[in-house]
Amino acid sequence: MTKNRATSIGLIAILLWSSMVGLIRGVSEGLGPVGGAAAIYTCSGLLLLVTVGFPKLKTFSTRYLIAGCVLFVSYEICLALSLGYAATRQQAIEVGMVNYLWPSLTIAFAILFNGQKARWWVVPGLLLSLLGVSWVLGGKEGLNLVEIKQNIASSPLSYILAFVGAFIWAAYCTVTAKYAKGKNGITLFVLLTGLSLWIQYFSSPQPPMVFSWPVVIKLVMCALSLGIAYAAWNIGILHGNVSLLAVGSYFTPVLSSALASFLLSAPLSWAFWQGACMVCAGSLLCWAATRRS
């Protein structure tokens, strides 16, 4: 496989991941936040068994296996439930934007815990990402503290889960870079996520799962997107242009919001797009701060 082709496949993974916010929310509206997420990750895990295969656990570092399982499962549950519990579709897209603090946080964690060298402008990059999220939460007026408080108060669990999830994913990326040693446990992690959600579904009161053709179609699309994206990303990282893929991934907030707005028929304000661009710019600035001359 040529490098250009592998890079193109990796970029397809970014496109597929960008559809997740809209699709997860769509499925949760029919099957419930927990039931919908459980169905998504179960189907995706089964697909990964076919596309990626089950990992040989004996070759894994114990630290990576334990920490990776805990962090990955925790993050995916935070992400799926934060979208499912959002009060409205527009709010679900805003919650998804909070989650996209993770690229900047990942670089901050790499600096703090993995000895990553960085230039001083990593700090403005982090601040710009935070400002972008605040701008999104401020509604049509942009940075409005009163509106931000009211927005969060209307669905605090969603925003808390998304915010915590961003830190968890940054920690997962840091652990993976340090302990994975080229191993990929994604199939195991996704299956465990589905299992954990089913345990939660059957052990606590949940709304009934109402299947309809639109919901089933979104469930299949979501499972395919998640499963194929991880397989495609693995090819891109192993054989493609990693730097180009990294840059492309930092534009995910804008692409994800556009796809979610289309899939959910939820128009977004100009202030939202301003905030989304700030998040992207902040992430890119953090990334550039770690690049060597």
Rank of each mutant, 00 (worst) to 15 (best):
A80R: 00
N241Y: 02
G227S: 03
Y250T: 04
G194D: 06
A13V: 05
S204V: 06
S196T: 12
K149E: 07
T59R: 14
V73K: 01
T2D: 10
G30M: 10
F211I: 15
R25M: 08
G139V: 07
P103M: 10
I40Y: 04
T193I: 11
L224C: 10
L128G: 01
A246G: 14
E29D: 14
W102D: 03
K183D: 08
F211Q: 10
A108V: 15
W102P: 03
V52T: 15
I228E: 00
C43P: 01
Q150V: 02
Q91L: 12
L47C: 06
G10K: 05
C286K: 03
A229Q: 01
A276N: 09
V210H: 14
K117H: 14
A246F: 06
N4W: 03
H239D: 04
W135L: 07
R292H: 14
I168C: 06
Y201N: 08
R5C: 00
V27K: 09
Y179N: 10
I107S: 08
V73L: 03
P253Q: 05
P33A: 15
T62S: 15
L126W: 00
A86D: 01
A80H: 01
T252Q: 08
L143K: 04
N4L: 08
K149L: 04
T193R: 07
K181S: 11
R89H: 11
G132H: 02
F211V: 14
C222K: 01
V164N: 02
Q116Y: 12
P55E: 14
V27Y: 09
Q150I: 01
L48I: 07
K149N: 04
L127S: 01
C277F: 15
T42M: 05
F251D: 00
I40A: 06
W17L: 08
L259D: 02
F167S: 10
G32C: 12
S203H: 10
V215C: 13
I40R: 05
A223V: 06
L145M: 08
S196E: 07
K149D: 04
W17M: 05
K149P: 00
L65R: 14
N234D: 13
T252V: 09
S44T: 08
K181H: 12
W198M: 03
S19A: 15
L126K: 01
W233Y: 11
G35E: 07
M221Q: 09
I228H: 02
K178Q: 13
E147W: 01
L245H: 04
N151Q: 15
P205M: 12
Q150E: 13
L79Y: 06
I237Q: 10
F211M: 15
H239M: 02
S18A: 13
L126I: 13
G96L: 07
Y85R: 06
T106V: 14
L264V: 09
A170N: 07
L11F: 13
N144M: 05
L224S: 07
A288L: 12
G194M: 05
N99A: 13
K181Y: 10
W270H: 14
Q200K: 11
